[in-house]
């Protein structure tokens, strides 16, 4: 194998920028990140890019390739035709820093607003007992490598900057879901999910699920179940009445102290 591929790479910073053309060698088995590295070693030594593991494990190399949010290290060159021009841009939902690097601090701020895991106060380390079937749902969500591609692709913030204050994006709705399903957690985050994290912004259009490199079923397994659990509490009078009769003692959870958005 081995051919020259045509690339367009977005270069610039917040003051402006544009797509630059490159023609680069491609060898068998390479991924897009290899090509970016080759550019750095040859034509563009100061081309800014984030990466760490080059094995799809750290979630650093998120970008948009031919308009689709993807990990550069997990996008094989063999998925493109040899005569195709491949366009790489930074993620378009977050402010750009330089070239392919964006400012993802939005995500870290939202992460900080999710009330943390709270185990029962009297449970000693070493005494935790959890059944495998009870941890499995949350384990799926803990596969998340925080590439933030889901938050990048979610139209609620991608297309509406102003929603960033009130909506935390799929990644953190999933985090709430994860804690809600944790067998030993004692906090009820359902009200927080709606009030502070904007659960209602999600219109279940599933783009987050589409792009997740970990193949987590974000919408089906995290967000919709969370919406249903919220409905149990907020929108379902019958269920609320039933719970008065103690039918749902599973749900003896505290409400957390107010956070920043409260």
């Amino acid at each position: 194998m081995g051919y020259k591929a045509r690339f367009k790479v977005w270069r610039g910073d917040k003051s402006g920028g544009g797509l630059e053309d490159f023609s680069v060698d491609v060898n068998e088995g390479e991924v897009v990140l290899d090509i970016v590295h080759r550019l750095q070693a040859t034509d563009a030594p100061d081309l800014a890019v984030r990466w760490n593991c080059k094995a799809g494990k750290c979630g650093s190399c998120s970008a948009e390739i031919n308009g689709r949010p993807r990990l550069m290290c997990m996008t094989r060159m063999s998925t493109f035709a040899e005569d195709e021009t491949i366009t790489i841009t930074p993620m378009r939902t977050f402010p750009v820093i330089r070239d392919l690097v964006t400012d993802v601090s939005y995500n870290y701020e939202k992460a900080r607003m999710v009330p943390a895991f709270s185990p029962p106060a009297d449970l000693e380390p070493g005494d935790y007992r959890m059944a495998q079937v009870d941890v499995e749902r949350s384990q799926e969500f803990r596969k998340c490598i925080e590439c933030f591609l889901c938050n990048d692709t979610c139209h609620a913030v991608r297309d509406h900057e102003e929603n960033k204050t009130s909506f935390s994006g799929p990644r953190f709705l999933m985090r709430i879901s994860e804690l809600d399903m944790h067998p030993l957690d004692t906090v009820d985050r359902r009200e927080v999910a709606v009030q502070e994290h904007g659960l209602g912004y999600c219109n279940i259009t599933k783009c987050c699920t589409d792009v997740c490199p970990e193949h987590i079923k974000i919408t089906d397994n995290a967000i919709i179940p969370l919406k249903e659990r919220v409905a149990d509490k907020k929108y379902d009078p019958i269920f609320s009445i039933a719970s008065l009769f103690g039918k749902t003692k599973e749900r003896a959870r505290r409400t957390p102290p107010p956070g920043k958005n409260a």
Partner: peptide
């Protein structure tokens, strides 16, 4: 062992044995 158990108090979810350990 103490350090691993401590992780559970931080929220870690390790794979479990049939007894739940």
């Amino acid at each position: 062992p103490q350090r691993v158990w401590e992780l559970e108090t931080y929220g870690a979810l390790f794979d479990r044995t049939p007894e739940g350990k």
